[in-house]
Computed example of a mutant assay.
Amino acid sequence: MADAFVTGGEHPSCGICPSRRFPLGEFDVFERPSVDCPFDPVDGHRYTAAGVPVCVHPHKVGLPPGRYKTDGTPFTVELKLPDSPAALDAYLYEVMHSAAPGVLELLIEQAAEEIPRVFPQVDVLQALRRALN
């Protein structure tokens, strides 16, 4: 079995979240609980009618809602940089520290490309160091 998408006890995902049991692409992420992913009282998890495990807290796992398993939705990550370089450190810190493992690498790569384009005066390496500390 492949490694779970989320690992480690310090991540804000729920203890029963499918992201702790399955790799990215092997579970869906819904915006919130719904009738499309009822709670199974037998094992405490949520599933689609087809039996696909579902996470209902996208903000906790750092993934946008998507039917990754059900529809094969490809995963993408998009930084939305602030309007001002003064707000960059706080934004990057929040984004990087709430990202699930695997997503962090994608965010760092995207930041390394986008920051110089949006804020050419910012030292990208220093900004990422501050964000990751």
Rank of each mutant, 00 (worst) to 15 (best):
G51F: 08
F22W: 14
R46L: 08
S19N: 06
D36R: 00
I16V: 09
A50C: 01
A49V: 08
P53I: 12
D28K: 02
G51K: 10
A50D: 15
T48F: 13
F22Q: 10
C37L: 05
Y47W: 09
V42G: 09
V52P: 09
V52I: 14
V52Y: 12
P53R: 10
P18M: 01
D40C: 14
P41A: 04
P33G: 02
G25S: 11
D28H: 03
E26Y: 12
C17G: 03
S34M: 00
E26Q: 13
C17E: 00
R32Q: 06
C37F: 05
R32N: 05
D28Q: 05
V35I: 06
V35H: 03
V52C: 10
G25F: 05
R32L: 04
P18H: 04
R46I: 08
D28P: 07
G25M: 08
E26S: 09
I16F: 09
R32C: 05
G25T: 07
C17T: 00
F30K: 02
R21N: 13
R20P: 01
V42E: 12
P53W: 12
D28R: 11
S19M: 06
F39K: 08
F39Q: 07
I16P: 11
A50E: 15
R32F: 03
C17L: 07
P53C: 14
V42A: 13
F39R: 07
R46H: 15
V42R: 10
C17H: 03
P18F: 01
V52F: 10
G25P: 09
T48P: 15
S34N: 02
F27T: 01
R32I: 00
F39T: 02
L24T: 03
V52D: 11
F22G: 11
F39P: 02
V42S: 11
G51L: 12
P23V: 15
C17F: 01
R21L: 13
H45R: 14
V42T: 10
L24W: 03
F30P: 02
P53E: 12
S34I: 01
V42K: 10
F27A: 07
F39E: 05
R20M: 02
F27S: 06
E26C: 06
S19C: 15
R46A: 13
A49R: 09
F22I: 09
R32A: 13
D43S: 10
F30A: 10
I16H: 12
R46P: 09
D43R: 03
C37N: 12
F27R: 07
A49P: 09
R21T: 15
S19G: 15
R20Q: 01
R32V: 05
F39H: 14
P53S: 11
H45N: 14
E31L: 08
